[in-house]
Design a binder for these strands. Structure first.
Length: 272
DNA sequence: CTGAGCACCTGAGGGC
DNA sequence: TGCCCTCAGGTGCTCA
């Protein structure tokens, strides 16, 4: 799935496609459910509305219209794509027909994605958004904040970084990558990460997410932008999916293990 | 409260 | 070539 950088890349592309504030002329559902049933009737209430903006909160895309908000999550394999005329895509589930002539497809083979409405006036109160931690690229996400949060936890630091209640947007790739850059072993107990290490880790998280956005995201497997352009950040992965490959710093072979059900990669020498 | 395990679903890739 | 197995960017449930 798309982690924060990939979602942000999609957001920017949608923003460009929504230039001129097109109307939602038709919303076509090719199936009734993704991971959960879609609230089709509520979504249809947005018909005819102009699209005003598209924002991102955590890994959610928030499309703001005159008549309300449309929220989407890309799950593991979700994408918003400009549908080309006549194509008959197996995994297209919803089409947004816009008044500028574009047809946007929500395409998601595994159907772990989400499509719902949200209240524009109180987005933070919507059920999907009300328990989220701070945005990692904003100033409130600091070393002292992370250190205090980690102090409260006994488990390993890597799953903690992926907990969206602690901080949003970091998924399985960027958790491994940020810990490598900060020289922290993923297995390190959260409450034993020093303030100094937490400061370094926050700096690395901000840097890696920003770099990934600039590179158009990581295109492992099938992530692509709305108009088929792949990102290139996966070329800069230093540990993720590199089991048995020499560490770029010290040459030791990268190791892999499973933590909280997710593959985890690290250098046994550089990270302690 | 926390953390672990698993379920949700399809497709890609490796081994034989 | 084909079959079978494992694994995949996330989240949210149950259970201890």
């Amino acid at each position: 799935m798309p982690e924060l950088p990939e979602v942000e890349v999609v957001r920017k592309e949608l923003e460009a496609l929504f230039e001129g504030q097109p109307r939602l002329e038709k919303i076509e559902f090719l199936r009734k459910e993704l991971r959960d049933p879609m609230p089709i009737a509520k979504i249809q209430l947005l018909l005819g509305a102009r699209i005003l903006a598209v924002r991102r909160r955590a890994k959610y895309l928030l499309i703001e219209t005159e008549k309300g908000g449309l929220l989407s999550h890309l799950g593991m394999t979700g994408t918003w794509r400009v549908a080309v005329g006549g194509d008959d895509r197996l995994h297209d589930h919803v089409y947004l027909h816009l008044s500028n002539g574009l047809r946007l497809a929500f395409r998601d083979p595994r159907r772990f994605g989400i499509l719902e409405v949200f209240d524009l006036r109180f987005p933070e109160k919507s059920p999907r958004l009300c328990n989220l931690g701070p945005e990692p690229l904003e100033e409130i996400f600091t070393g002292i904040y992370l250190w205090r949060q980690l102090k409260l936890r006994k488990g390993p630091v890597k799953p903690a970084l992926m907990d969206q209640k602690l901080v949003v947007g970091i998924g399985n790739i960027y958790a491994s990558e940020a810990l490598f850059r900060a020289k922290i072993r993923p297995q390190r107990k959260s409450n034993r990460v020093s303030l100094e290490s937490a400061e370094i880790l926050v700096g690395q998280i901000k840097q890696i997410l920003a770099e990934a956005i600039l590179s158009g995201g990581s295109s492992i497997s099938d992530f692509k932008g709305a108009q088929d352009n792949p990102g290139s950040f996966h070329l800069l992965h230093q540990v993720y999916d590199r089991k048995g490959v020499p560490c770029v710093i010290c040459g030791t072979l990268i190791r892999q293990s499973v933590m909280a059900g997710r593959s985890t990669f690290w250098c046994p020498v550089c990270q302690s």
